[in-house]
Design a protein around this nucleic acid. Sequence first.
DNA 1: TTTTGAGTTGTTCGA
DNA 2: GTCGAACAACTCAAA
Length: 468
Amino acid sequence: MTRTAIVWFRRDLRVHDHPALTAAIAAADVVIPVFVFDEVLLAGKWPAPNRVWFMRESVAALSGELAARGAGLRVLRGKPADVIPALAAETGAADVYVTRDATPYGRRRDRAVAEALAAGGIGFHARTGLYVHEPDTLATKDGRPFSVFGAFKRAWDAAPRRALVPAPDAIPGDGRAADPIPDVAAPTASADHIPTPGESAARDRLAKWAVQPVADYAANRDRLDLAGTSRLSQDLRFGLVSPLDVVERAEGDGDGRRVFVSEVAWREFYAHVLWHHPRVAGEAYQRAFQHLPVRDDPAALQAWKAGQTGYPVVDAAMRQLAATGFMHNRARMIAASFLTKHLLLDRRLGEAHFMAHLTDGDLASNNGGWQWTASTGTDSQPYFRVFNPVLQGQRNDPQGDYVRRWVPELRGVSPARIQDPWAMSALEQTAAGCRIGIDYPAPIVDHAEARARALAVYGEAKAGSGRG
DNA sequence: TTTTGAGTTGTTCGA
DNA sequence: GTCGAACAACTCAAA
């Protein structure tokens, strides 16, 4: 009797190093790949056209890879707990294979699907694939979750790894042609700024990165004006490349390779934190800052979103995000620090804005990054670390090329004043073709005042929580 | 149980 | 311009 298995793709849109796909092929005579345009996600609280577009194009690419190997991708729309069991019934499948998804929604969704399948006697098999080490496989000697990165990283380094799985040469399909992929809304970023979707393009990016540029990562990664980062974030987000593959190609001698692998481990640390503490998606990890008094200032929030704060490096960052669906890692910290510390706005407003635009937007990483910057996260990072946007700009964008690229009003400003153009005299402003308050906004807050205000508010919150 | 070393990414001030 | 201290003591993880 023919045994049929379904492989349900989600955020693992690849055929290389795909343990679930490989397991299905080994276990079944007929393998039916499927992707579901999940209405819960598409209509979710964070509409994200850039991410949906990138996903749609990557699904199309996956469909091509699968077809070339003999299987037509089914494309469904609806609630997974309805459509996956329905597909299993229609095709007579005995098993469903997936790559394990550790997000809170993914856990709920998969539990519901597994229960619905079990009612029909159909197996649900989750395999690793989105992490080098799954979030629940590492623990302290006491069996507790890690709450500092250093110890997590030591355990991550020491844990045994599985072997990479090659892409299958052939997939025994059921003879059905691939379904058409539905159209989605256009991205809000211009498509030529979004990296080419699909596994093949992602593997090219990885191959080029791992040969040489990664070796210079430690030296260049903070430079806003250089292409010193891997640009693999959206590929990891959608599983176009396997994190294990990324790490094993990038590993080697030198600070660059070591630091880059450590960044991949950070991604897994934040997944670990979210797995063990799903509450961080909505509240501060550190309970002392759970009720931090944030300001209600829609005008300031709007200025931040629009890149009109008057701080060039912050505005460049925010405009890069809007224009491209991407923001440099260091720029994310600078922009997030400005929202949480200088403007004292709710961290979650910034977090949601990032999720709305980032092609690589990932709940665990984005939340972890925001909590770190807001000083509410796992680290014992003191709250008095407030980024100075002028210093950060001077240090990480020394000639101002990043600022000039994204804030054209400042193109005529000299490198000496590009990070603090308000310090130009009236004469200099006219010569630079940039009058502060007319061509480019004056700073919406004073750095020294805002810093002092943030330190006071955070200090009070911490002291208040200590008193109970 | 107690001790010990460690802890992503910063800024400011004064010598 | 450079350098170290202060910021504020605390918590974690392992021995």
